[in-house]
Design a protein around this nucleic acid. Sequence first.
DNA 1: ACAGTATGGAGAT
DNA 2: TCTCCCTACTGTG
Length: 275
Amino acid sequence: MPEGHTTHALAGRLDLAFAGSPVGASSPQGKFAAGAALLDGLTLVGASAWGKHLFVEFERERWLNVHLGLIGKFSVMRMPDGQVPVEGQVRLRLRNDNWVWDLRGPTVCAVVTPEKVQQIQALLGPDPLRQDADPDLALRRISRSTRPIAELLMDQSVLAGVGNVYRCEVLFRHRIDPFRLGREIRPTTWWAIWDDLVALMPLGVAFGQILTMDDQVADAVAEVANGSAAAHTFERRFYLYKRTGEPCHMCGSKIRTQLIAGRNLFWCGRCQRRR
DNA sequence: ACAGTATGGAGAT
DNA sequence: TCTCCCTACTGTG
């Protein structure tokens, strides 16, 4: 389930599991053997995320950069002494006395220099989950663009961390026509989208799942306020995502779908007319 | 059991 | 624009 909420949650958990002490690194699959050897035994300084990119800093200015892509996944096991048999294609295994983290199927897994980290981050747009994010940067790109807003929201150089689910759902939440061009989007509309993502995505991090429907969002917010987050899973449902042909939550007309740049866009042609 | 699909994006062509 | 990554879940038989 890799949109930005996933990488941010992973960064936090990596810190808790490994930061401050040496980490064993290996590549059972062999494909990352050279990279793992560069990290093996080094102390992990800290982990962070920018959009869907995960950055893990080790000693000696060595950074691990992971991008899960569509099918990549970390399986996290709390196991003493790393006594976990390798199953399937494990690109990278990180371990210490308490934890085994197996990475499978990532799009990117590389050891990079601090300069390269800067370079990658410089190509990413603002991330609603980062304190240092500057949404003006995204607005400038959007308001100059002749590409549809649905496409811009998925462009990681415009806005980092949003994927197909948040994209579809946030456009619906604000009744925005997904085909409206960037330059037709009113600044106030962009601020509404941004503020909404800033509110929604931390819930995704806290609960480990994307929450966009108002009733669930309200419950999640209340639970966070109570300090009782994360022990709870919500029923997996959305306004639009993967609900082609079903009646729209608001107006009852059929939810539509269309392939845009290789990805399925879901929207309500009747509710979403704003710009 | 088996086929189809996907909450991305890199690299080849 | 196509293929790969090669997991995990869903729907069909």
